[in-house]
Amino acid sequence: MIDIAELKEEFKRDIGLVDSIKRLNEVKHKWTSKTGILKNLSKKITSIPLEKRAEFGKLLNSLRDFVRGEIQEKEKVLKETQEREKIDFSLPGRKIVQGAIHPVTVVIYEIIEIFNSLGYSVAEGPEIEDDFHNFEALNIPPYHPARDAQDTFFVKGDRLLRTHTSPVQIRTMLARKPPIRIICPGKVYRRDNDLRHSPMFHQVEGLVVDKGIAFTHLKGTLLYFLRELFGKGINLRFRPSYFPFTEPSAEVDISCPFCEGSNVCKVCGGANWIEILGAGMVDPRVLRNCAINPDNYSGFAFGLGVDRIAMIKYSIPNIRILFDNDIDVLSQIN
C-alpha cells in the first residue's frame, strides 16, 4: 500500500532544502515531471482495489495540490529574493577614502630611492644659513658676479635663507672625511616671483667625494639616474657651463621623453632637448675650504630643481599651481 502521508513528509523535506531555482527545478523534476513521483502514482491507481480507489484518488489530489502549491510559493519567494539581491554592476562603487602626496614630494622620493639604490645617503641641513656655508665656502666671495643669479632673502641678524642646498654639502664635508656619497633634498629660496620662478622651491643636490673620481663617473651616474627617472629611452647632452663651485661645469639636457622632435611638443617646444640639471667636478677651492686635499681627492656634484621636474612629469604649466594646494589638482597625483 502506498503511504501518501509519508510521501508528503518526504516532499516537505525536499522543498525545505531548496535555496535556489536550480534546486527547485530538481525538486520539480522529482515530483511533477512526466516521470515524476506524482505521475507514477497516477499510473498506479489501476493497481489499487476498486473500493479504495476513490479514497486514494482524493489523497493523491490533495498531495498534488499541496506539492504544486508549495512549489509555486517557493518559486515566488526565490524570484523575489533573486530580484532583491541582484547586483547592478553599472552602479558606481562607493568612493574609497584616499588622499595624495604632493607631486614635489613624490619626485623627491623617486630621486632618493634611485640614489639609495646606488648607496647614497640623504643629508640635510638648516634653511636659515650663513654667508660662509651658502656662498664663501662654495667659492662665491662677496661681490662675486655669480651672486646675481641667486638673489637672496636676508634675515635679521646677518643670516640668509639658503639659495641652494649646497651648504649641506659644505656641512657634510666639514663634518666627515671622504668617501662621501650624499644627496641633499630640501627647500631653497630666491627673490624671484613670476610664472616660472617661485620665491621658494625645492632642490636635490648630489655630492660624491672619493679617491679617483673622474668626469666620466659624473656622466655615468647622471645617465643612470636620469634614465631611471625619465625612462630608459632618453639620451643626455652635456654643455659646458659655469658654476663657482664646480670646475668643469656642465648644463645637462635630456632628450625630450614626450615627443620625437615634434614642433608642437609643449614640453620641449620642438627643441628636443630639455635643460634638466647643472653638474660638474667639485672645484678644488671648495675642497680646500672644507679641509679636503684636492691632490688626493676629487669629486662631482649636481643639482636639480624638483619643482620643474614635477611640472614636466605631470604637465603642470605654471609653478604657482604647485603651491595653490588645490585638492582637485592634488587628488590626481597617485
Binding site: I112, N116, L118, G119, Y120, S121, V122, R176, P179, I180, R181, I182, V208, D210, I213, A214, F215, T216, H217, K219, G220, T221, L223, Y224, R237, F238, R239, P240, P248, A250
Partner: peptide, 18 residues
C-alpha cells in the same frame, strides 16, 4: 663633454645612512 664615455663608478658598500 659629449665625447667622453659614461662610466658608473663602482662603490663598495653604502654611505653613512639616511
Amino acid at each position: 663633454f659629449d665625447n667622453l664615455p659614461y662610466e658608473l663608478p663602482a662603490f663598495p658598500g653604502k654611505d653613512a645612512g639616511d
